[in-house]
Design a protein around this nucleic acid. Sequence first.
DNA 1: CTGTTAGCGCCTTCAG
DNA 2: CTGAAGGCGCTAACAG
Lengths: 345, 345
Amino acid sequence: MVKRAPVTLADVARRAEVSLATASRVINGSDRQVTPELEQRVITAAADLGYTPNAHAQALARSASNVVGLVIHDITDPYFSSIANGVIRVADRHGLIVMLGTTFRDPRKEIEYASMLRAQRVRALIFVGTRPSSRAMTSRLATELESFVAAGGRAACVSQARLPIDTVVPENRAGARKLARELVALGHKRFAALTAPRSLLTAQERLAGFRDGLAEAHIDLPDEAVTSGPLTRDGGYAAAHELIDRQTGATCVFAVTDVMAVGAMAALRERGISVPGDLSIAGFDDIDTLKDLTPALTTVRLPLQEMGVRAAELVLDGGRPTPRVIRVPGDVVLRESTRDLRSRG
Amino acid sequence: MVKRAPVTLADVARRAEVSLATASRVINGSDRQVTPELEQRVITAAADLGYTPNAHAQALARSASNVVGLVIHDITDPYFSSIANGVIRVADRHGLIVMLGTTFRDPRKEIEYASMLRAQRVRALIFVGTRPSSRAMTSRLATELESFVAAGGRAACVSQARLPIDTVVPENRAGARKLARELVALGHKRFAALTAPRSLLTAQERLAGFRDGLAEAHIDLPDEAVTSGPLTRDGGYAAAHELIDRQTGATCVFAVTDVMAVGAMAALRERGISVPGDLSIAGFDDIDTLKDLTPALTTVRLPLQEMGVRAAELVLDGGRPTPRVIRVPGDVVLRESTRDLRSRG
DNA sequence: CTGTTAGCGCCTTCAG
DNA sequence: CTGAAGGCGCTAACAG
């Protein structure tokens, strides 16, 4: 295996005995026409040499790359991988390739990636995941994005509409409110909740919405009945243990994400508390991978992959300049994890 | 929001009243020294202008990008997202950014991505996932990779060592063999299996290993007791239904992946077959997201994230030219989904 | 239809 | 330590 010098278009042109321009025209699908004869010669030469165009040179020359940047918090979290899958699908359909950034839930990394991806001159930039409540972080990201957009880039995000770009907004608050109502309708009167740190808007919204729903039935969700932890399975697990220790007397627990709910269920199982026998539990998101959990989890369904698709289309299909907002409603799905208290008095 | 022309290093230099060279030296961490005075001027100018270097121009000039390509089959499958997470972690540590390609399980897309990523002049290329048994596909990909490597790129894969590049090889066959032994030790004598199409080497290996293990105990796994489907949850679901219809009389079923096992458990539940009461079931991979399944799944544990880390290190930390192979053993983890037949006669 | 020739934005010798 | 200039590989006018 010889370490031959990288072959360039010039090499191909030389071997095919045509000009650089002609070679370029047949290699990249230019609209200009070329004689079948020459075209064949170029194609053959390219194949013989194992030529591959240099995307950097192409991007530089026509000042437009064919990559889109995607920034998510955690690729192992099904919430993000589902949305990412949607984004990838449409990028793919457009012949674009995706550069993926993972923040590991650190807001600073989000900004760092925005900047790296901007340097890569990506065609579009998509951010997925809760916005931090930090005003400083948000405005720094916004500044970065403004430069990006000003330079001709397109950007969108899936979360709260806090950035000056197109946004796909899951209706967290309304969804949680509906969930609370249905749970109340099931006969529950005392609730508890598992949430994430206040710094995460998504958790805040869902908890607020849940409270709204309870309030309609004049039910209060006391602060002592709310514990919090990281937005992960283990976070839910720990928060649930803490909640159990507090003995709130609740008959139903709301976890702000399905992933946390799963951790909570594990904690309850460990403590010998049966679900939904002793305690009901509900989540939010309707993660597909979790559909085989027993008991099946009551939750608020969000069309995750579809949200990714929408976000991608927003920035890839032409598009107006004004930051647009697409609201995505969540549907309550009642399953086995929440007990119907009415049928037993 | 004005659509200003993209600002270049030349703009920064002009504003800082220094030469292009000086500006370049302070922006990219060159080893050459620059007076603090001038340095500050450049930094300020860059900030004022909202300047971001053009990665394409940089890559072109120094012929070396700072991105690594990663190709997986399905981002929503925890097997891949875990490994990908490992890769991303080390890329991140090296200040590199990841371009992600998803094949949606189509071998042709793997080749297509190899070519696109080569065009992007990625520093390294990593393929994760079973190799197809198709000799044609494999050799086309190999050709592509040889050109890539010849041009100075580094490549690795996680799967079977079929490509002329560094490889992290999960010991599928040995792991499945050990699993079979332990299951036999539990008292099981009649088995069945859920596998994927023959075209997928990983499934082939695991099934073969399982057969090896049974053979040691002189137990046969008849073809009628083996059904197959896509390597997904739904594939396992469908394959399980088919298996149930065949009434094989098995007391234990082996699914070649945890994901398929989960689908199978759902099918069994639907048909009123209790696990492990009526039938035991075991998987392979030990997917973390599935750890809260009930009953907990017996499986063969593979250090997924670690495998991704190893693959990335193979191509990112210096490295010899010879294709190296790292074998990763799998550990059997007996849990609730497989019944111990001995304790009850 | 084909060839010539400027750049695209930046890095990097090589003088000063 | 700083500046001037060539070139990285390719595209896109512009002539022929």
